[in-house]
C-alpha cells in the first residue's frame, strides 16, 4: 500500500462528498416535489459512496483517521476532488449538465473498479455502479426534456453545458501508472472516449451542441481548487470544528 493508493481513493471520495454537499442544497428548492425526492436520493447515494471511500482512504493512510476526521478536519488544500463538482449549482440546468457528465464518468469508472485488485474498492464500486446507473438515467431524462423542451429551456441547457464543459477534462487527468498496472485504479485514457461518447450521444439527442472549448486549468487532485471550495468547506465543517473532540 502506498500513499498514491490512499490519495487515489481520497480523490474519488472527495468527488462524491463535495457533489453530495452541493446536491443537498436542492432539497426544498427543486422545481417540483418529485425532484426534491430524486435529488435527495442522488445526494444520499453520493454521500454513502463518500463515506465508505473516506473510511477506506483513512485505513490505507494508516494514521487512524476516520470518515469524519477526513471530511471535517482537512483544509481546502488537502481536498482532492475535481473542480467540476465544487462550483455552485443553484441553476437546475447546470445541475443536470454536471450530473450527466459526473454520473456517466462514475458509471464507467465504477464498472472498471468493480474488478479492482483492491477488494474494498471493488466492493464499493460494485454497489455504486447500480446507483449511478440511475443518476445517469435521471440526468439524461432531464437533459432531453430541457434541451428539446421550450426555446428558453434549450438556451439555458446549452449555456449550462458550455459552462460545465471546460471542467470535464480534469476527470481524465493522469493517474499513477503503477496503480493502473497493479489493477487497483482505472485507466483514464480508457474512460475518456467511453464517457465522452455517451455524453455526446445524449447531447445530440437533446438537440444540443457538444462545445469546443479549451479545458479549464486543472489542479483539484493536487489541492488547487476554485475559490468556491473554501466557502463550501467553511459551511460544512464549522460546527464540527467548533467542538473539537465532541461526538454527535
Amino acid at each position: 500500500m502506498t500513499n498514491a493508493h490512499a490519495d487515489y481513493v481520497l480523490g474519488l471520495a472527495d468527488d462524491a462528498l463535495v457533489s453530495a454537499q452541493r446536491m443537498g442544497w436542492w432539497i426544498s428548492r427543486a422545481p417540483q416535489l418529485e425532484e426534491d425526492v430524486a435529488l435527495a436520493n442522488i445526494g444520499l447515494d453520493q454521500l454513502g459512496q463518500a463515506r465508505t471511500l473516506l473510511a477506506h482512504a483513512g485505513s490505507l493512510e494508516g494514521e487512524g483517521r476516520g470518515e469524519d476526521d477526513l471530511a471535517y478536519f482537512r483544509d481546502e488544500r488537502d481536498f482532492r476532488n475535481v473542480k467540476l463538482v465544487e462550483r455552485p449549482q443553484t441553476d437546475f440546468a447546470v445541475t443536470m449538465a454536471r450530473l450527466l457528465v459526473f454520473a456517466t464518468w462514475q458509471a464507467e469508472l465504477y464498472a472498471v473498479l468493480a474488478h479492482s485488485s483492491d477488494p474494498t474498492l471493488a466492493g464499493v464500486a460494485g454497489k455504486a455502479v447500480k446507483e449511478v446507473a440511475y443518476h445517469v438515467d435521471h440526468a439524461r431524462q432531464w437533459v432531453l426534456r430541457l434541451g428539446d423542451g421550450t426555446d428558453e429551456s434549450h438556451l439555458r441547457m446549452q449555456v449550462a453545458v458550455d459552462a460545465e464543459w471546460p471542467f470535464v477534462e480534469e476527470l481524465f487527468g493522469a493517474v499513477d501508472p503503477a496503480l493502473v498496472a497493479d489493477g487497483i485504479a482505472a485507466d483514464p485514457t480508457v474512460l475518456r472516449p467511453a464517457v465522452l461518447g455517451r455524453v455526446g450521444r445524449v447531447l445530440g439527442e437533446a438537440t444540443l451542441t457538444v462545445p469546443h472549448l479549451a479545458p479549464a486549468v486543472a489542479g483539484g487532485r493536487e489541492g488547487l481548487h476554485t475559490e468556491h471550495l473554501g466557502f463550501l468547506l467553511a459551511e460544512m465543517q464549522h460546527l464540527s470544528r467548533s467542538h473539537p473532540g465532541a461526538s454527535w
Binding site: I27, L33, V37, A40, G43, L44
Partner: peptide, 25 residues
C-alpha cells in the same frame, strides 16, 4: 443539511427531509 456535524447525521437528515417531501406527495 449543509452543516450537519458528522456524515452519518448528514445522511440521516437528508433522508428525513426527503421523507417529508414523500409525505407531501
Amino acid at each position: 443539511i449543509s452543516r450537519a456535524p458528522s456524515l452519518r447525521r448528514k445522511a440521516i437528515l437528508m433522508a428525513k427531509v426527503q421523507d417529508e417531501a414523500g409525505h407531501g406527495l
